[in-house]
Amino acid sequence: MTETPHRATAEVTELTLHRLLDGAEVEPGLLGGLRRVAPPPEAEPMGFFTDASICIGCKACEVACKQWNGLPADGMEWSGRSYDNTVHLSATTWRHVTFTEQALPNGEVRWLFNSDVCKHCTAAPCQEACPTGALISNEYGNVYVQQDVCNGCGYCVSACPFGVIGRSETGDGLAHKCTLCYDRQRDGLEPACAKACPTGSIAFGPVAELRERAQARVEELRSKGESRAYLYGADDAGEYRRLNAFFLLTEKPEAYNLPPAPTRPVAKMLRRYAWSAAVGIGLSAVSAITLARKGGR
C-alpha cells in the first residue's frame, strides 16, 4: 500500500486578503473572519479507530459528545428502528450509534453496533467545496470548521458523501460537525467520546499507530473465526483517499448505513467545466457568425 500524506491542503490553492481592516470594532466574525493568523506548527496526524466488533451500543459516546461540546438536545421520539432513536448525524449530533439486528438462518438474532462519526477524510469533499476557507485541515490532520469564518452557504452539506456535516437551521445558521475535540487535543486530552467509551471500541491516537493496531485486530478476529472482519477507510480506495477516522466492521457497510464506495465530487469537476465551456464558446461562435452574416439596419 502506498503512503499518502494525511492532509489535502497541498492540493488547494488559497490566496488570502487578510488584515484588511485590522482592529476595527465590529461584531465578532463579521470582519474577524477575514483575518488570517499564522497556522500552528504541524503536529502528528491524530484520528479515531472505531472497532465495531467490541461496541456494546451503550451510547456513552453520544452523551459525552453532547455534554462536552454543549450541543442541544434533538428531541426524543421513537424511531421504531431497534434501539436507535438518534437515526442520523447532524449539525447537533456528532456521534451516532447504529443498531442493526440481524436474523441468522438458525433463528437467532445478533446485534451489530457501530459508533458513527465524522470520517476526517484526508482529502475531504467538504473542505474542497467550502468557498470561504472556513473548513480546514488543522495541525492534527483533522477537518475543522472555523466558526468565525463560516457563513452558512451549505455547500459542505451536499458535498459530504457520508451525510456527516449539517447546517444548523434553527440555531446559528452555520455548519457544524465533529471537531475531533480540537480544544481537548490542544490541552493534551483525548476526545470526550473516546474517554467515555467503556469497552475501548473508540480508540484515539496517532493515525499511523492506530492503523497498525487495527490491522493486528483484524488478524486477531480472523484467527478467532470472525472471517468477515475488515477495515473501512484505513487505505486509499479508487478516487477516495483514506480516512483519519476509520472503522473495523464485520458486515457490509450498508448494514451500518455507510456508503460502500464514497465518491469525491471534485474528482470529475474539470470534465463538468469542460462541457460548460465547450457549450458556451460554441454558442458564442454561432452567435458571432450569425450576427456577421445577417446585415444590420
Partner: peptide, 21 residues
C-alpha cells in the same frame, strides 16, 4: 440563501478554484 447573511463577504476572503461556489 446563506445561513448567516451578514457574512456574505467571507466568500471573497480567498480565491479557491477547487470550490465552484
Amino acid at each position: 440563501d446563506l445561513g448567516r447573511p451578514s457574512r456574505f463577504h467571507h466568500m471573497l476572503r480567498i480565491f479557491k478554484p477547487s470550490s465552484p461556489m
